Computed example of a mutant assay.
Amino acid sequence: MSDSGKSVYVTLSGLPLLVDFKWPFHSSTAGADFWVLHADAKLGNSGLHAPVAVNLSATVREVLPSMEPKDVEGPVVNALRKEVDRRQLEFVKSGKLVPVQFSSRYYDFKRNKWIFGRASDEEITKLITRKVFWHSRLLGGNVWIGDPAEALYVESTVPHLLEIARNLAESGLMTVEGEWASANAALLAQSEKFEADMKSALIELEKKHAFEDAKRAG
């Protein structure tokens, strides 16, 4: 989130996403026991996007305090990021809604917590660096490092993410005040690197979908 209330969510593979949700969840018209939320995940400023229908299962609905954005937006954003990490979503110029299962895959009922995969400090450092860069590039303004959705995505804590951000600030890449960061010139000067990371991750994702398309074509 930035001062404007918007946020860039970066995947561990390096893809910056801008997600537009069409709240609220609504009951499935197919008669099945789940709820649906439409969203559009835009890939940075590439002109590519992934229109999705997030399907909330009845099992997961039971553990949610509500289906309001304040209670569910973070986990949904992270489910979308994990689907991108797993190369399940394809970014296109135009396309049909793709169903995304927001199910017990991402919830540990024994420990009563969301599970999106634990990241190493090295991965978290990359994530924060990329987030601050892409947010500054695409939206401008300050970047909320203390967003609980970010800590949830990497199975860490907000204080730990802020500690890593402060270490990055000491290197001169960004300025950190409280839970907020802003990109310094040294970080913005690395635009070629971040763009190359995004291009590489997108190529790998597209390869996977091209392979699957070829298999279906027989």
Rank of each mutant, 00 (worst) to 15 (best):
V143N: 05
S200N: 12
K131A: 02
G141H: 09
K208F: 08
Q190C: 10
L15K: 10
A185V: 09
A185K: 13
A181S: 06
I124V: 15
A201E: 04
F25T: 06
E122R: 14
S120F: 10
R216N: 13
V52N: 03
V52C: 08
A165F: 04
L205E: 02
D71A: 05
N55K: 15
V60A: 05
E68K: 11
S156N: 05
G117M: 10
K193W: 10
K42D: 11
T29A: 15
A201F: 08
A165N: 05
K126Y: 08
D121E: 12
A32L: 13
A53Y: 00
E73A: 10
T129G: 03
Y153H: 11
V36S: 04
E204F: 00
D108F: 05
E83V: 10
L205K: 00
A214S: 13
E150S: 11
P65L: 07
N167S: 13
A214F: 13
K126A: 04
I145C: 03
V98C: 06
L80M: 07
F133E: 02
L138D: 08
P159E: 01
S13R: 15
E195S: 14
D33S: 14
L138Y: 08
S57N: 00
G172L: 11
A201I: 07
M1A: 04
H49Q: 13
E179C: 04
R105L: 09
G117S: 05
T11S: 13
D108K: 05
V52G: 02
Y9C: 01
W180N: 07
L127G: 01
V8K: 01
L18I: 09
D108G: 06
P65S: 03
A185G: 05
E206P: 02
